[in-house]
């Protein structure tokens, strides 16, 4: 904190992403796969979990603050405040459990309407657990149709096998970068988040200074 501060920001953009969906669909697993590239049996999330990942995309350094909410019913009202200011929302369902898919429209889409403050916020529908192909209960086409209906992105992935996990976040972030209003919110010049910009020294020591 106290090191000599230069004008070089640690990142170009900071985006807040939110993950929602029923309990047990694999939100935390997706996030764990994306951030640490590992996979394990996870306990249910309490309230909200939170991880940060730096990515470089299209020559831009991005800091992704990803909020992983609990799917437990009790937390539905509690997590409402986390929708605020999110640039991207990932709606996860489990392709082997149809309820998780229908609940997205019944419950979670409504939550977004209620709580999301960001009109332009990019939404993404993600069907997880495609590794269990034999147990599939929701077809890809159904997912696509719903995604089209909501005007959001769509991907099927597997946190267990890594399939499409990176792409989920990548596509979402690219879309955010394509949206000027969201870009402006997330640009490093605007400090509205709890994260302060890092002093340059730290930055210089770790990554190639550009």
């Amino acid at each position: 904190m106290d090191s000599s501060s230069s004008s070089q920001p640690e990142f170009d953009y900071l985006f807040k992403l939110l993950m929602i969906g029923d309990s047990g669909v694999g939100k935390s697993s997706l996030l764990l796969r994306f951030t640490l590239d590992s996979f394990e049996d996870l306990s249910p999330t309490i309230g909200v979990d939170f991880k940060v990942k730096m990515v470089t995309l299209g020559g831009k350094k991005l800091k992704l603050a990803i909020w992983d909410t609990a799917g437990q019913e009790r937390f539905r009202t509690l997590t409402s405040s986390y929708y605020r200011g999110a640039q991207g929302i990932i709606m996860v369902y489990d392709v082997t459990r149809r309820e998780t898919f229908t609940n997205l429209s019944d419950v979670w889409a409504r939550e977004i309407d209620l709580y999301s403050t960001n009109q332009d916020c990019i939404k993404m529908l993600v069907g997880n657990k495609v590794d269990k192909e034999s147990e599939r209960a929701v077809t890809k086409k159904e997912g696509l149709d719903v995604a089209r209906g909501y005007g959001c992105l769509f991907l099927e992935c597997s946190a267990k096998t890594r399939v499409n996990v990176e792409q989920c976040f990548e596509e979402l972030v690219l879309k955010i970068l394509d949206t000027p209003s969201l870009c402006a919110e997330g640009s490093a010049g605007v400090k509205k988040n709890i994260f302060k910009q890092k002093p340059a020294q730290a930055d210089a020591s770790t990554s190639s200074c550009c």
Partner: peptide
């Protein structure tokens, strides 16, 4: 990815 020691703020 970036900086193993740059987390003081957090």
């Amino acid at each position: 990815s970036a900086r193993p020691d740059g987390s003081s703020g957090c």
